[in-house]
Simulated scan of single mutants.
Amino acid sequence: MRNQFSLAHLTALACPPPRLTYIAARAGYDFVSIRPIAMKLKNEPDYNLAKNKSMLRDTKTALRQTGLQVLDIELAKIEDGMEPKQYEPAFEVGAELGARHVLCSVWTDDEVFANERFIELCELAKHYQLTIELEFVPVASVATLKQAVRMLQAAAQDNAGLMIDAHHFHRSKENVGDIKRIPASWFHMFHLCDAVKEIPSAKEQMLKIMREERLYIGEGGIPIKEILQQIPKIPYSLEIPHLQRVKELGFEEYARRCLVSAKKYISLFQDDVNIS
């Protein structure tokens, strides 16, 4: 079975889902990953497909015409005061589009509250045949692999998974060997990217790299090969935002180069890992 790749929305966030889908197809991707739940950050576009019915229709058309599938939707944040039901319209849209997974991260320090809401999210997602993929983020409340594993163990939900982002794994100073102890059934997708080896000490600089300056696969200092050696074969979502390169190359050519770099990097050691 060949490797499969998705174009993550953050790589080309300025592109609405229909345009993102056509770009992904022309660039050679197998999936597209879309963001119908806005993170409410400054200058971030809002692609609320549950409310924007015309954009939803156009997205369905783009998927039908290209033959691409939706790998995941994002981002179901667990933060103080949130209720899982607020994400149900997006879950319904995700199911309509054939999505498989929903990304989730935790931004509250109330561990009991977070665990309860995570279980509720999983239960809600079951109605739409979706999994909830917990992503640890170094600037969030669940910031490490250990914290994410503990939360998944406590939840004990059969539609919950662990979503590792190569950038976050490296920035959280994780040990590659710890992945061996994670159940293979928890892995459904992986965020593939690269970044400079040096870990910024300032949160602002880390955020800037995370959202604006990630690198082509093999260009930076993240131990990508070693990480991939420890996980089963799953789709790789290329989340590689780099604003300057997009300005220079345009979204489609940049997306194509991201994919080329990933395929080239993996081909160098394909026979040695679980990605043959």
Results as ranks from 00 to 15, higher is better:
155 A>S: 15
216 Y>P: 04
151 M>W: 00
128 Y>A: 05
222 I>D: 08
225 K>R: 14
250 G>T: 08
142 V>K: 03
153 Q>D: 14
189 M>W: 02
120 E>C: 04
231 I>V: 14
192 L>W: 10
133 E>D: 15
118 F>P: 05
168 H>V: 09
207 L>V: 14
135 E>Q: 12
159 N>D: 00
135 E>A: 06
173 K>A: 13
235 P>L: 03
157 Q>G: 14
255 A>L: 02
167 H>P: 00
196 V>H: 10
148 A>E: 09
177 G>T: 10
228 L>G: 07
203 K>H: 08
145 L>F: 11
206 M>Q: 11
255 A>H: 01
228 L>T: 09
205 Q>W: 02
164 I>V: 14
204 E>S: 15
148 A>W: 08
120 E>D: 15
256 R>K: 15
171 R>C: 10
191 H>N: 13
184 A>W: 11
162 L>D: 12
163 M>S: 04
117 R>M: 06
176 V>E: 10
212 E>S: 13
179 I>K: 00
156 A>Y: 13
185 S>Y: 10
239 E>A: 05
232 P>V: 12
206 M>V: 00
257 R>K: 13
222 I>R: 07
124 L>D: 04
250 G>I: 05
152 L>D: 10
260 V>M: 04
144 T>S: 13
248 E>L: 12
172 S>T: 12
257 R>W: 02
193 C>N: 15
126 K>G: 02
170 H>K: 12
227 I>W: 10
124 L>A: 11
239 E>W: 07
250 G>M: 07
153 Q>G: 08
120 E>K: 15
246 V>H: 00
150 R>N: 14
193 C>F: 08
224 I>H: 07
117 R>W: 01
168 H>R: 11
214 R>N: 06
237 S>D: 10
211 R>S: 10
191 H>W: 09
186 W>F: 06
255 A>S: 13
154 A>C: 03
204 E>W: 12
154 A>W: 02
212 E>H: 13
157 Q>Y: 07
224 I>R: 06
254 Y>L: 01
142 V>A: 03
179 I>R: 01
214 R>A: 07
260 V>R: 03
122 C>Y: 04
116 E>C: 05
178 D>T: 02
244 Q>V: 03
223 P>L: 09
250 G>P: 03
143 A>V: 01
138 P>I: 02
205 Q>N: 08
190 F>G: 06
248 E>R: 10
192 L>D: 10
170 H>W: 15
196 V>D: 12
198 E>P: 03
157 Q>M: 15
161 G>A: 08
217 I>P: 04
220 G>W: 02
151 M>N: 03
240 I>E: 02
140 A>V: 03
174 E>L: 06
217 I>K: 05
207 L>Y: 13
175 N>M: 07
169 F>Y: 08
181 R>D: 14
152 L>N: 12
130 L>N: 05
183 P>I: 09
121 L>D: 03
257 R>N: 07
